[in-house]
């Protein structure tokens, strides 16, 4: 009896509601309402943060100046997913990319609407938004990046 392996099963019942915060709130509303990317500007370090923050992580200045960042960026890094987040095989591989935007520190990670053999680093892409009226101030208001 003592050799019998016993296990006890359990679950994590909590769920979470995360506020986007002061900077995140404006960032997501601008996407929803105006279909544009807005960053915050640090005059002291002369950088634009995208996604925006209310502080500069380098000099710790409080950031109040908002700057529009162009909807076009450049693919910096690529990965191709063959399984989903539960480890199940995807019907079609999904291309994910980190996209940098001119003049901005940071970037966005999202899908790219191309087969993996056609995607390469350095490719210029633009943001494709969900239709107006369907957007809900979430990062998923961006559907994917497509080649320019």
């Amino acid at each position: 009896m003592a050799d019998e392996v016993r296990r006890w099963r359990g679950d994590m019942e909590a769920y979470y509601i995360y506020t986007a915060g002061v900077a995140g709130d404006r960032f997501l509303r601008e996407i929803r309402d105006n279909g544009r990317l807005m960053g915050t500007y640090c005059p002291r370090c002369d950088v634009i943060y995208l996604p925006p923050r209310i502080y500069c992580e380098t000099c710790f200045s409080e950031l109040n100046e908002w700057e529009e960042v162009p909807n076009k960026g450049v693919i910096d890094a690529i990965t191709v997913a063959y399984v989903n987040d539960k480890g199940e095989r995807l019907p079609q591989p999904l291309v994910w990319a980190l996209v940098r935007f001119p003049g901005a520190r940071g970037g966005l990670v999202h899908f790219v609407s191309l087969p993996e053999e056609d995607v390469r680093e350095g490719m210029e892409v633009e943001v494709v938004y969900r239709r107006t009226g369907r957007r809900e101030a979430a990062i998923t208001d961006i559907l994917y990046f497509k080649p320019v």
């Binding site: 995360y18 506020t19 986007a20 915060g21 002061v22 900077a23 995140g24 709130d25 923050r53 209310i54 502080y55 380098t58 000099c59 710790f60 409080e62």
Partner: peptide
């Protein structure tokens, strides 16, 4: 409304200001 990061920034900035130093 603030995220955890934003709250950290606000508190840190107050402490640095009282000490008279920068990050």
């Amino acid at each position: 409304l603030e995220t955890g990061k934003e709250m950290c920034y606000q508190a840190s900035q107050m402490a640095l200001a009282e000490a008279g130093i920068e990050l």
